[in-house]
Computed example of a mutant assay.
Amino acid sequence: MAAATGSPDERYERIFDLVPREAFLGPGPWHIAVHPWKKSYRHRYIETPSDDPVHVNQNVLVALDRTKGINNGEPLLHAGWLGSVNPQRGEVVTHIGAGTGYYTAMLSMLTLPYGSVHAFEIDDNLAERARENLVPFEGVSVTHGDATVLTLPSSDVIYVNAGVVAPPAHWLESLRPGGRMIFPWRPNEDVAVTMLITRGQSEFSAQPLMPAWFIPCIGASDPRQSLRVPDRTGARTIRSAWLTRDRKPDESAAAIFRDVWFSNDSAAPTTVAT
């Protein structure tokens, strides 16, 4: 796990050791997804032979709610994400799609001391389980609600665990200068890629990372908001993101949505559109 972050930060190994995954999954035996890299987020599951934690302390998807296709995500993928956004001591993190709080707990420990994590979970049962699981962790709040319409706190990191066609404009606006947002981008059925957005002063750089398949984000997965979508190759060439109100789409646009668009050009400071 620590090696998968790609980070020299020595805290990761200790944090991954201290946060027991099985404590956030409910009592075993558990159900593990089979063929998790298929395009659909709906999986076939097999039951672990026992409640021995060794069965879930592997790089596997573990069901949180099989009927809804909601899982606790693959640890090595999340390790890579955590290393990419690199949460620091004292930072404010917003976690969207917190599930039962396993990765929320890690985010909390990475922001100690004086940091805070604001978790949002739209499923009421999962939100309640997250509240119970996160009681021992400092600076964590859990909100049951739709983060695509609720106001987010001003954040250094926004960590999104649900597939997004286009990030809502207020997510980008909630990032502080230097803030990082990571989310699974699903502009169409053929593209499923991790997108890392970093805010400058008036611009947002964008970096496509590894593949990522997540359950759709309610409120941010409507394909009807798409005006132009990229193919897989086009998605990999994206270098910046813009709020349409600040800069209108131009010939560099690889993907265009109602309030946000993505460009093949690198981000550069610009004046506000008039």
Rank of each mutant, 00 (worst) to 15 (best):
Y159G: 07
D146V: 01
S226Y: 04
G178L: 05
S116H: 12
H35Q: 10
V56S: 04
Q88E: 12
A4D: 12
S205Q: 06
E189S: 12
V191L: 08
A255P: 04
Q58I: 04
I32Y: 04
N59H: 07
G6D: 04
G90Y: 06
T271A: 11
E22G: 13
H78Q: 05
D265H: 13
P269Q: 13
A166M: 06
A267Q: 10
G200S: 11
G26T: 05
R186S: 14
K38D: 12
P113C: 06
A192M: 03
T244I: 13
A98F: 05
P49T: 03
S240C: 11
I215E: 14
I96M: 08
I70Q: 12
A255H: 09
V193Y: 02
A127L: 02
N125P: 00
L196W: 02
W242Y: 15
V191M: 02
E10M: 08
L77W: 00
Y45Q: 09
S263K: 05
E121T: 08
N264T: 14
V19F: 03
G99W: 03
I215T: 15
G101C: 09
I32M: 10
M210T: 10
F137H: 11
F24E: 11
W261I: 07
L196R: 01
K38L: 06
W261V: 11
T143S: 12
N188K: 01
A268N: 14
G234M: 08
A220L: 11
S221T: 05
A241F: 03
A3Q: 12
Y102C: 03
H95F: 11
S263T: 13
G80K: 02
Q201W: 10
D156I: 03
W30T: 08
N71R: 01
G73W: 02
M210V: 07
I197K: 01
K39C: 01
F120V: 05
A241V: 15
A130P: 00
